[in-house]
Each structure stands twice: as C-alpha cells, then as structure tokens.
Design a binder for these strands. Structure first.
Lengths: 208, 208
DNA sequence: ATTTAATGACTGACCGGTCAGTATTCAAGG
DNA sequence: CCTTGAATACTGACCGGTCAGTCATTAAAT
C-alpha cells in the first residue's frame, strides 16, 4: 500500500513568499541556469505547476527574487542616517552594526547572484546599479562630505574612498556563500568589522 | 555558389591555449551552466569535436581554465615581496601597483567565476581557498607582522585586518565584470587605489 | 454546485557528448 | 621533385538525457 500523500492545502497568500524564499536559497547555491524549477518547487513544498501559477517564467521568478531584496533595508538606513546627529565616527560604527546584522540573514546571497548573472540579465544589473549601488554610494558620499565640512575628516574624494569603506562588507557577504562553505578558513565578522573601523578611523600606521 | 570555407589548419600546440582563452571569456560572461560548448568552440575558431579532443568534458575544461589562472602571479609577488627591503608603506604601494596592473588583464574574471561556481564545484573552491586565498593571506599577514615588529604599524590582528586591505581590489575586479559593464557608474582604478592607500596608511580622520 | 488552487504526466527544444568520415601533414619510395 | 599512403588533427551530423513550460485532471473551499 502506498503512503498516504499529505493533504493538498490551498494557501494563495502564503505561496509567493515561500516560493521566493526557496528560489533565493537555490539560486544562491547553484546560480540561475543550474537550479531546476522542480527543486525550487520541492523546497517550497509545492509542485512545479504551482510555481507557474505565481510566476510566469523562470526568469520572472529570478527577477522577483532580486527586486524585493535589499531595497527596504537600504531605505531604512537612509532615513536612519539622515536623521542621525552624531559624529562621523559614530555614523560609521552604526553602519558597521547594521551591516553586521544583515550578515546573519540570507539576503547576503543577493550580491553574489547579481554579480554572477549580470552578464545574462543586463536589465537587472542596471536596476541594481541604479537602485541599490548608486543610492548606497550617494548615502556614504554624503556622510563623508559632511564629515569633511565639519572638520572631522581629512579631505579626500568621496567617490574614490567609498570602496575602501564598503568593500570589506561585500567581501564578507561573498565569502559566506562561496569559499566560506568549503574551507575551514574562517572570517569572524565581528572581529573584521572592529578591525576595519579601527583602520578606517586611524589608519594602519602608528602615529609618529 | 557557396562561399569557400576557410582552410582547415592543424595546430595541435596552439589549440589548448586558444580554447582556454575562449572558455575563460565565455564562462566569465555567462557562468558555467549558461555557456554552450558550441560557442566556446566557435570563439576559439574550432569545431565542438576539437574541444573534446583536448578536454574530456565541459567540467574538465572549466577546471583547466581556473587552475592555470592566478597562481603564477601570486608566486611572482611572493618572491618579490620576500626580497623587498623597504618600509611597510612602500610594500603596500608595491602591492597596489601590481594589482593595478592585473586589472588590465582578463584574469580579473577568475574571482567572479570562483565565487559564482563554488557551490557547484566544491573541490575547486577548496583548491582556490588553499592555493590562492590562504597563500595571499599568509603573505599579507607576514607583511603586517613585520611592520608591527619594526614599530611602523599599530598593533592589530593581521587576520582581521586583511579584508580592509584586500577587499577593494577584489571589489574592483568584480565590478569590472558585472555592474561596470552595464552602467555609466565608473570606478577609476588608479584613483581608487590611491585613495585606498591613503586611507590605509593614515585613516579617514583628520589628526587632532 | 461552482470556482479555482494545486497537481504531475507530458512535450519539445536544447545541448553535452560521440564518432564515422574528411582534410592536412609528412615521410618514404620512386 | 613528385607520388603515395599512413598517421592524425579536425569536422559536424547525430543521439539521448534533461528540463522549462503546458494542460487535463483532482480536490479544497465556499
């Protein structure tokens, strides 16, 4: 006798989110081309037909995954930093804490996915460049400019300095979903962020 | 009348390199799954059968592409830095110049490829973690430790400080092959490296 | 009874891999 | 030099498995 199949449930409202979460995880692990829609469906606890009920094609599913990703977080940081009154050092510390919190989240796969698929999805690359990267850069540039105006920071071109500030966070997110999975070589996010803030604020060189 | 096909040439010694170069370019643009062997063959000026003459499977071709990539450059830097006698600041400047030179090379696709395919090729991820990343980190950690011993650098855990130093270079390489292709938002490598060295050595903060 | 969320067997295009056949090279024999 | 033919680099039509996308059917909900 065959095992009784679990009862079919109709949950129109919950499906899209579950499918998106399953898709984010699998696209993140394997990339777009290598993930099969059957696997996304299985992980979402649903059949393939159901996926097609909510997303017309695999590409649409992919776009949906990436579009709803980082923007809410970015917006939250924008308002928080806009209203914050502390010193630039405090502001950088705040950014560090916020991004550190994101590190415990599966949103960290998104940068890897965007990087990997930019060639196959130019429109998505453009979307991310404009709606995420440019906005984040503008946010940081504003902070740096204000710091210089206040006399807290040495003068430096904000555009050129942004990678020095942001790249380690990006690197940790990428690490978590690539080499970090397959080696004992560990990056401790807390320690890295602490060291990074120290370097940013004081530099490596010992004062004379 | 049909156009005369170009003459077939037998060039056993030149093929592997040409195929590898074509494969590196296409894997870099599209990722492993999304690149078709027919396209690799076409770009190498060869038929699909010829590719299989030199590489038994698509995966073997992929591994060959990634294994012959960055190690020679890393080794060159290792000996150069081991014999260098200058200050830590000079050493960091040298690293900056070396990596800046690599930026004009198509070797910059390799990090993106390794990141994107780490989930599908765990053995390759391990290889890169051990043979490239660990070695590069050991190299940098050594430089930092020597700088601290000499009293040139403030004390800081070398492991934790490495992302602050390396990540911007990685970020520029990734940028070049992802968002950089699809947006006017430009990163000027020379300016970024110059700003980065300034930040590393002196920090962002103005001296009191 | 009607509506519609959900299923999963099915289809067909696509692409990794094969191999019988073709073209080039080169050396030995005339 | 000019054949001849053995060795082999190279080709591309073909095969078979895989997987995105479809749709007739089932069953939950109201």
């Amino acid at each position: 006798m065959l095992p009784t199949p679990p009862p079919r449930r109709r949950r129109k409202d919950a499906r899209p989110g579950e499918i998106l979460a399953a898709a984010l995880a699998l696209f993140g692990e394997r990339g777009f081309s290598a993930t099969r829609l059957d696997d996304v469906a299985a992980r979402a606890g649903v059949s393939k037909g159901t996926v097609y009920l909510y997303y017309p094609t695999k590409e649409d599913l992919f776009r949906a995954v990436l579009r709803q990703g980082l923007i809410p977080n970015l917006e939250a940081m924008e308002v928080e930093l806009a209203t914050h009154q502390g010193s630039t050092a405090e502001l950088l510390g705040l950014i560090g804490r916020r991004l550190l919190a994101l590190m415990d989240t599966n949103l960290t796969v998104i940068p890897k996915l965007v990087l990997a698929e930019a060639g196959n999805f130019p429109a998505l690359a453009q979307f991310y460049a404009d709606e995420v990267v440019k906005r984040a850069m503008a946010l940081l540039a504003g902070i740096l400019r204000r710091g210089m105006d206040r006399g807290e920071l040495r003068t430096i071109d904000p555009q050129d300095a942004i990678p020095s500030i942001m790249a380690p966070f990006l690197m940790m997110a990428l690490w978590k979903h690539s080499l970090g999975q397959h080696t004992n070589l560990a990056l401790d996010p807390e320690a890295v962020v602490a060291a990074h803030l120290q370097v940013l604020l004081h530099g490596l060189e010992k004062r004379p």
